[in-house]
Design a protein around this nucleic acid. Structure first.
Lengths: 238, 238
DNA sequence: GAGTGGTCTAGACCACCAT
DNA sequence: TGGTGGTCTAGACCACTCC
């Protein structure tokens, strides 16, 4: 009984949403090709894509670059206040986590890193890049920096498992505090490629500085999430 | 020296970014009309809008529905772990906060609200809706629910100021814990209209449950942010 | 009332994915 | 190699803002 005239792409959006429900398309099910849907709904691809992008922004469907559109599975809750690693909290929420190490190397601190770690620019920093999967879907690209002078022979660790546990057990590192920043960005280049999204797609960036008991930053992380894959959640004592 | 062929809208995006910098367009400066830019850059409006949406997704520019495109001011940092109100943290970051009360009423608890407050469905809940401004720009729409039975004569409070302070002083409420969830959504209908965005534009949703010292939820907030206006930030003791 | 942004059409070409 | 998604053109109409 609404008297407001809806734009066509909104009507199509609503139709697609119902279609997904009606056909009982499960998590990660692939939608028909754009041309097929557009013909079926008697519209053009441009308009259809407007509707698809709408559903994407809402996190109802997601895209894989040049592969098509898929139904989004439930979001994983991520609690930055907890000392629990990716592998554990994904499992705890009934999904299968997986980690793929992309690159391990030691670099000279950039100006930015030197500033973060409060070290000189020529000093060495350990860098780890990996992709994290949930139920075999790439959802998170992370870049971890560690002060190389704090962790000798770090490269011998198995980085496809929990880094936190490894640091505590092998080096006796004491985690005292972390500083977290989170905001919206766009996923670009290597990150976009790793997550199978179009370069420029929206993403969630979470940056963390972790301090030891002497107030020194020993670890700095940059996490890039597919935005529909997670939500932040935390409990705070006031 | 890049051999990768960039899509035209990315080239235009880059050009616009430089233009904004070169013309020294300050915060909230308005870009020329789409037709003017499109003609100038010898492209079509569709392609130009692709570039504009890209810059929008990156938070470099923002949009006001049917008014045009503007340069985004710096982001406000928002720390959900701190008991500091909007008015204070905005001021502390060198900007001018403002609050506009949209609606104050008492409603019967919906199923969802009854569940959150752990009360019966017929019970009354106080509802407050307001828009928050930063430097005279509407950036946040919030919906606050309070248990009506906890706060008699609540309607006499001045809601354009800090609610937290009012609750503590007038009712002696003890804040013990809060539970925060944050994820990406799209802004719709009344919320979109209030924030001057197109219905369906991306937004950040932050939901908070606040507990008293008897583990009862007495306040529940839903905050809808223009995504380019803020970033989450917090320090956590491990 | 002029000009704006929001929406839409009916095509097209290309690079890439799946087969 | 055929079909797909990503990009792009050159128009158009409408509702709304701004003057």
């Amino acid at each position: 009984m609404s008297t407001i005239k809806l734009p066509q792409f909104v009507i199509i959006r609503n139709y697609l949403e119902q279609m997904i429900a009606a056909k009982r398309m499960g998590p990660n099910a692939k939608l028909p090709s754009e041309r097929v849907i557009a013909t079926e709904l008697n519209t053009t691809r441009v308009t259809l894509r407007e509707a698809l992008k709408q559903l994407e922004a809402e996190g109802i469907i997601y895209r894989q670059d040049r592969r098509g559109w898929f139904v989004t599975p439930h979001r994983i809750s991520y609690d930055p206040t907890k000392q629990i690693g990716f592998m554990d909290y994904v499992k705890a929420q009934g999904s299968q986590p997986k980690t793929k190490v992309i690159e391990i190397d030691i670099i000279k601190a950039t100006t930015e890193l030197a500033d973060i770690f409060n070290i000189d620019e020529h000093m060495q920093v350990f860098r780890l890049r990996r992709i994290r999967f949930i139920d075999n879907r790439e959802v998170l690209y992370e870049q971890i920096y560690l002060r190389a002078d704090f962790f000798p022979e770090l490269e011998k660790i198995d980085f496809s498992h929990s880094l936190t546990t490894a640091l505590k057990n092998k080096y006796g590192t004491r985690f005292s505090k972390q500083h977290v920043v989170s905001h919206l960005i766009t996923l670009q280049n290597a990150v976009a490629k790793a997550l199978l999204v179009v370069s420029g797609a929206p993403g969630l960036c979470i940056k963390r500085k972790i301090y030891d008991d002497q107030e020194r930053v020993f670890e700095y992380d940059e996490e890039y999430w597919r935005p529909e894959a997670c939500q932040l959640q935390m409990s705070i004592n006031l």
